[in-house]
């Protein structure tokens, strides 16, 4: 699996803060996958995205986009990335089509008008906006506005899409449309980075999770076979402590997150030598909710 973005020892401190908002983060973001960025408020999500998008004036470490090793970060972002901010980042006074045409004019001067028209039609269809093409953006419902927000990002034909809470404040029906749209982007091979406080959405869409807390990041492969929660209950108190990766969640009951299925055999062997007998053992896919809860502890 190739990487879309490589993050190496990324650290950043705001001049006004005494602490690091991002602290020595190194991880790889896989191409053609959806990576969810979760964490409590103030964890550094916005700063992390700003860094990935070259929007921070300066930081320590490196962010490298695949195929853009020799160009500046902002230049890489201009070539490959589109942002979908949480706000409705378009002109409410203009119609859907006028908005799309304006943003397209900023990035496709070399395209023929026929190619531009065909791209716009494709985007309108994909984002289910064809029936409101001449409606003023200010008159659209919340769901349509969210879709227009995403559609504008698509005029760049981006390889990487950053989406900040793209479903916030809309009805379940519109939410489903957007989620299926994002799943379609995944199928098309786009790399998605997605922040949300709605963990069920992250669960549904994301392949990988980046959990941010106090400027530190934990990267987790969320695909079922690579993100396993092992739960073990002993019949009596342990006389020798278990490996530090086990977490005691209640008396006699321990949990551990495994990052690959191959770890399971090693664990079972390890547990068979433990100082108390096993009464119950279970493994299941780890939920984003649990990852989040564990992360913020």
């Amino acid at each position: 699996m190739s990487n879309a973005i490589q993050v190496k020892q990324l650290s950043f401190q705001y001049k006004t803060n005494s602490y690091y908002s991002l602290s020595d983060i190194s991880l790889d973001i896989k191409a053609n996958k959806c990576t969810g960025i979760i964490g409590p408020n103030g964890a550094g999500k916005s700063t992390f995205i700003s860094a990935l998008c070259g929007l921070l004036p300066s930081f320590d470490g490196k962010v490298i986009y695949s195929g853009c090793e020799n160009v500046s970060l902002l230049e890489s972002v201009k070539q490959k990335v589109a942002l979908v901010p949480q706000e409705y980042a378009f002109y409410p006074q203009l119609s859907v089509l006028q908005n799309l045409r304006y943003f397209l004019s900023l990035c496709s001067s070399k395209q023929s008008s026929l190619a531009q028209r065909s791209l716009l039609n494709e985007i309108l269809e994909q984002c289910v906006l064809s029936d409101v093409v001449n409606t003023k953006a200010s008159k659209l419902s919340g769901g349509y506005k969210r879709r227009l927000n995403i559609a504008i990002a698509l005029v760049k034909k981006p390889e990487v899409l950053f989406l900040d809470e793209p479903t916030v404040g809309i009805d379940p029906e519109s939410r489903d449309v957007i989620i299926s749209l994002l799943q379609q982007f995944k199928r098309e091979g786009k790399t998605l980075l997605f922040t949300s406080h709605m963990l069920d959405e992250v669960e549904k869409i994301c392949d990988d999770i980046i959990m941010l807390k106090d400027g530190s990041a934990t990267f987790m492969d969320h695909t079922e076979q690579n993100n396993i929660l092992l739960t073990v209950t002993f019949s009596s108190e342990l006389t020798e402590p278990l490996n530090a990766e086990y977490q005691c969640i209640e008396p006699l009951k321990y949990q551990r997150v495994l990052t690959s299925k191959s770890q399971l055999n090693e664990c079972l062997l390890e547990l068979s030598h433990s100082s108390a007998s096993i009464e119950y053992l279970n493994y299941s896919a780890n939920s984003v909710e649990r990852i989040y809860q564990q992360g913020i502890k």
Binding site: C53, L55, L74, V77, K78, Q79, V81, A82, L83, P85, Q86, E87, Y88, A89, F90, Y91, F103, L106, C107, I152, A153, K156
Partner: peptide
């Protein structure tokens, strides 16, 4: 305020061109 400027920053035009 509505994030358009930040979005435009990632478009293939420079601030000077804009």
């Amino acid at each position: 305020q509505n994030g358009t400027l930040i979005r435009l920053k990632t478009f293939p035009i420079s601030s000077a061109q804009y």
